[in-house]
Design a protein around this nucleic acid. Sequence first.
DNA 1: TCACGCTTTCATTAAAAACTGAAAGTAATG
DNA 2: CATTACTTTCAGTTTTTAATGAAAGCGTGA
Lengths: 173, 173
Amino acid sequence: MSKELPEWEKAREEFVVQWGSLGTQWGIPRTMAQIHALLMTAPEPMCTDDVMERLEISRGNAHTNLKDLVGWNLVRIITKKGDRKEYFEAEKDVWKIFITISKERKRREIEPAIHLLRDCAARTKDEATGPGKDFHQQMQDLDEFLSFGVKVADTVISMKHASALQWAMRLLG
Amino acid sequence: MSKELPEWEKAREEFVVQWGSLGTQWGIPRTMAQIHALLMTAPEPMCTDDVMERLEISRGNAHTNLKDLVGWNLVRIITKKGDRKEYFEAEKDVWKIFITISKERKRREIEPAIHLLRDCAARTKDEATGPGKDFHQQMQDLDEFLSFGVKVADTVISMKHASALQWAMRLLG
DNA sequence: TCACGCTTTCATTAAAAACTGAAAGTAATG
DNA sequence: CATTACTTTCAGTTTTTAATGAAAGCGTGA
């Protein structure tokens, strides 16, 4: 067996494993979620071999998922002088993580949907009656809702944490 | 080949197929997303055989996904008197769909995460210095953020569409 | 009670996604 | 320019997830 870990490292272990399972429920590859959890709780940037060893995964897997996380802007590459290795460091600020994920999801998931809805609405804009008109209306309703959501998201995304908080408190209060 | 469809039905076909692919990106089974798209644009409630035929899928598949959608409260079962079949009807009101999905995601995805974070924070509450303390702090930050998000979501969920709109307009204005 | 019409389950198969490991690529260094 | 220290790719494999279709279940009414 491996050597005894300090108490916080045991909790971290648990966090990494469980965050991985939560990830899959959420449509995120297990390994990617685990690496993210690992890096979010890393005192220092980690290199590919650190991650491989810690999670007991292959080089290819570690590499691909690290780069995907970089692609999501959730992780950045750090280089140390006199060292050819790349080190990886996760964004730890919760508000920044939120902003980043919101932006990416908007781009990857919402915008293509809006595209589709507009296309379907355009193709049926001359439908004047009955089911054809209802279909057109449904496409438009969905489009309007998502587009409005994007506007709200853009506003929130451009806010500093403090002002967003203040604004949200007003909503709750 | 099948008979000629009216123009709006062709657009609907496109919508169903594409919504299915979008669904997979989102972590939702293709068939489930397709059925949802089909029902959201159905002039009348549909029975299992209607869905099977339209999407060319097996009975088991149609059945399971219809029931899953019912489980998500996105679809309800309609019975007609003098007819033993179950018919399925999707919620079409965009705001209601949004509320429903928010509630379910909160329950299935956010709350388990909060649980995990609290557990990990509790296990390290005595860490006074260094990495252990940082870990504890990170767990708490994540917890606080998600918990706050839940509070905001609960507030929005309890709003009527009109008041939510009004409130959002104030944010944007 | 049995036959019918529909719903549900589930063992099997198919498809998709994730992971491995080894080989190829790249660039800094002596 | 050759070695070294890494990074990147990818064909093949494993694992996971989704779909099939046939059989079992269930309730109604003849």
